[in-house]
Simulated scan of single mutants.
Amino acid sequence: MLVGSLSLNTKLVFADPLTTTLAPTRPRSVAAFTSVWAGAGSFAGFAYVDGEAITHAKSDFERDREMALRVFVHGVPETTVVWETLREGVEGPSVSLALPGFGNPLPSGFLPTKDQYASWLTGELKKVEGPIDLVGHDWGALLVLRMATAGDVRLRSWICDVGSVFHPDYVWHPWAATVITPGQGEYMLLRRRQSSPEEAVAMMLGGGVSARDASEVFAAHDEVMSRCILGLYRSAVPNVAADWGADGYAPTSAPGMILLPTGDQLDDGALSREVAGWLGARTEVLDGLSHWWMYDQTGKAASVLEKFWAALE
Rank of each mutant, 00 (worst) to 15 (best):
Leu312Thr: 10
Gly245Ile: 10
Pro255Val: 08
His221Phe: 15
Ala236Phe: 01
Ser290Asp: 12
Ala310Gln: 14
Ser253Asn: 11
Asp169Arg: 05
Gly130Asp: 11
Asp60Lys: 04
Arg87Thr: 03
Ala220Phe: 04
Gly231Met: 04
Gly280Tyr: 10
Ser108Cys: 05
Asp64Ile: 07
Leu6Asp: 03
Leu232Glu: 11
Leu259Ser: 01
His291Asn: 11
Glu198Leu: 10
Ser59Asn: 08
Leu121Thr: 00
Val3Arg: 08
Glu84Trp: 12
Ile229Tyr: 02
Gly103His: 04
Met204Leu: 14
Leu8Asn: 12
Pro27Val: 02
Ile54Pro: 00
Gly207Cys: 11
Gly269Ser: 12
Cys160Leu: 12
Ser195His: 04
Glu62Gln: 13
Arg154His: 10
Ala254Asp: 04
Arg227Lys: 12
Ser303Gln: 15
Met147Lys: 00
Glu313Lys: 11
Gly92Thr: 04
Glu274Leu: 09
Ala301Thr: 15
Asp287His: 13
Trp278Cys: 11
Val3Lys: 01
Glu124Asn: 08
Val209His: 00
Arg212Pro: 00
Gly130Ser: 07
Met188Phe: 10
Trp292Ala: 14
Gly183Ser: 10
Cys228Arg: 00
Glu313Cys: 03
Glu186Tyr: 02
Arg273Thr: 15
Asp16Trp: 06
Ser215His: 07
Glu223Val: 13
Pro131Ser: 13
Phe33Lys: 01
Val13His: 14
Tyr187Phe: 10
Ala310Val: 06
Ile159Tyr: 02
Asp268Cys: 09
Gly151Arg: 03
Arg146Cys: 09
Val217Tyr: 00
Trp278Phe: 15
Asp169Met: 07
Ala32Ser: 14
Leu189Ala: 04
Tyr48Thr: 15
Ala40Ser: 13
Ala220Ser: 13
Leu22Tyr: 05
Ile258Ser: 07
Leu230Thr: 11
Met225Tyr: 06
Asp169Ser: 14
Gly4Ile: 12
Gly183Trp: 06
Ala23Ile: 12
Phe14Leu: 06
Leu99Phe: 03
Val162His: 02
Ala250Tyr: 05
Pro255Cys: 04
Leu312Ser: 08
Gly263Ser: 10
Pro168Trp: 01
Arg193Asn: 08
Phe166Thr: 08
Ala53Lys: 02
Gly101Asp: 05
Val30Trp: 03
Leu106His: 02
Leu6Gln: 13
Ala148Glu: 02
Phe308Met: 06
Leu134Ser: 10
Leu279Ser: 09
Gly207Leu: 08
Leu134Gln: 09
Val128Tyr: 00
Leu12Asp: 01
Leu125Gly: 03
Glu124His: 03
Leu22Thr: 15
Gly299Asn: 03
Thr149Arg: 01
Asp50Leu: 11
Asp243His: 14
Met294Val: 13
Leu111Met: 12
Val144Tyr: 01
Thr122Pro: 03
Glu91Asp: 15
Glu84Arg: 13
Gly103Tyr: 05
